[in-house]
Amino acid sequence: MRKSVKRAVVIGTTLAVAGVAGAAWASWVAGGDGTASAQAGTASELTTNVVTTDATLFPGVTGDSTISINNPNPYPVKVTSIVWNPSDGVQATPVAGKTCGNTGVYFGDFSQNNIGTNGVLSGLDLEIAKGDSAQFTLPKTVHMINNSEDGCQGATFSIKVHVSGVSNAS
């Protein structure tokens, strides 16, 4: 073989090997930039009917209350606090022919004494499944003081409250 042909074959072979090696290297290296995204849903507020007394109250007596809470969210919720604003008062439905303007009924934690917690129940662990409702009895959470009107005898009491909770999803 001639020297120029040999040289052309060696150069061609070298270029072919370099090209294949370059292509093999290029097929293994890849890069790029981009942005991943996701969107969080929005939590819905828990809803409740008013708290009702589950006890027969007399002046100076502490009793239980009952609350139903609805969780419209697609995840379970743990209710951690229930708050009554004393300025909202307590609504009474007196028996026929009576009036009950001054109920003397208060909401809070009365488990330790008759003074209570000024309308705040905290540190609760009330679980509600996703998209479900649950009813809870809250022990020793209503108290009737001594200045309730005489017309409040036999009345039913309703208490407007605000519930707070957190996601209980695992």
Results as ranks from 00 to 15, higher is better:
107 F>Q: 00
113 N>T: 00
105 V>S: 09
27 S>A: 06
167 S>Q: 10
9 V>P: 00
2 R>P: 14
100 C>E: 12
88 D>W: 15
121 L>Q: 03
66 T>Y: 04
153 Q>E: 13
65 S>H: 05
145 I>D: 14
79 V>K: 07
125 D>N: 07
118 N>P: 03
46 L>Q: 02
118 N>G: 02
10 V>T: 13
57 L>H: 11
106 Y>G: 01
116 G>D: 01
129 A>G: 01
28 W>E: 07
103 T>P: 05
115 I>R: 15
32 G>M: 01
122 S>I: 00
48 T>S: 15
34 G>F: 07
16 A>G: 03
56 T>R: 15
23 A>C: 06
122 S>P: 02
47 T>I: 12
54 D>E: 13
38 A>M: 14
103 T>D: 04
5 V>D: 14
150 D>T: 15
63 G>C: 07
67 I>T: 04
102 N>W: 10
99 T>M: 07
131 G>W: 00
34 G>K: 09
67 I>H: 00
48 T>K: 15
106 Y>W: 13
146 N>D: 12
149 E>P: 06
40 A>Q: 11
142 V>P: 05
161 V>N: 04
34 G>L: 10
6 K>G: 11
51 V>T: 06
4 S>Y: 08
157 F>N: 03
13 T>D: 02
157 F>Y: 07
151 G>D: 05
167 S>Y: 09
72 P>C: 06
122 S>N: 02
108 G>N: 00
30 A>H: 12
67 I>P: 04
165 G>T: 05
74 P>H: 08
151 G>S: 05
108 G>I: 00
71 N>T: 02
17 V>T: 06
15 L>W: 01
81 S>Q: 10
112 Q>W: 10
22 G>Y: 01
49 N>Y: 05
73 N>W: 00
88 D>K: 13
76 P>H: 03
6 K>F: 11
30 A>P: 07
58 F>I: 11
107 F>M: 01
83 V>K: 12
149 E>K: 06
41 G>S: 14
140 K>T: 11
4 S>E: 12
118 N>A: 01
71 N>A: 08
150 D>W: 10
84 W>K: 02
39 Q>Y: 07
21 A>L: 03
62 T>H: 08
153 Q>G: 09
37 S>V: 11
129 A>Y: 00
54 D>R: 09
150 D>S: 14
48 T>N: 15
37 S>D: 08
10 V>A: 14
128 I>G: 04
3 K>L: 11
65 S>G: 08
79 V>E: 07
101 G>K: 12
95 V>C: 10
41 G>Y: 08
55 A>M: 09
116 G>S: 02
57 L>D: 01
95 V>P: 04
155 A>K: 07
138 L>T: 03
111 S>C: 03
64 D>K: 11
145 I>L: 07
57 L>G: 09
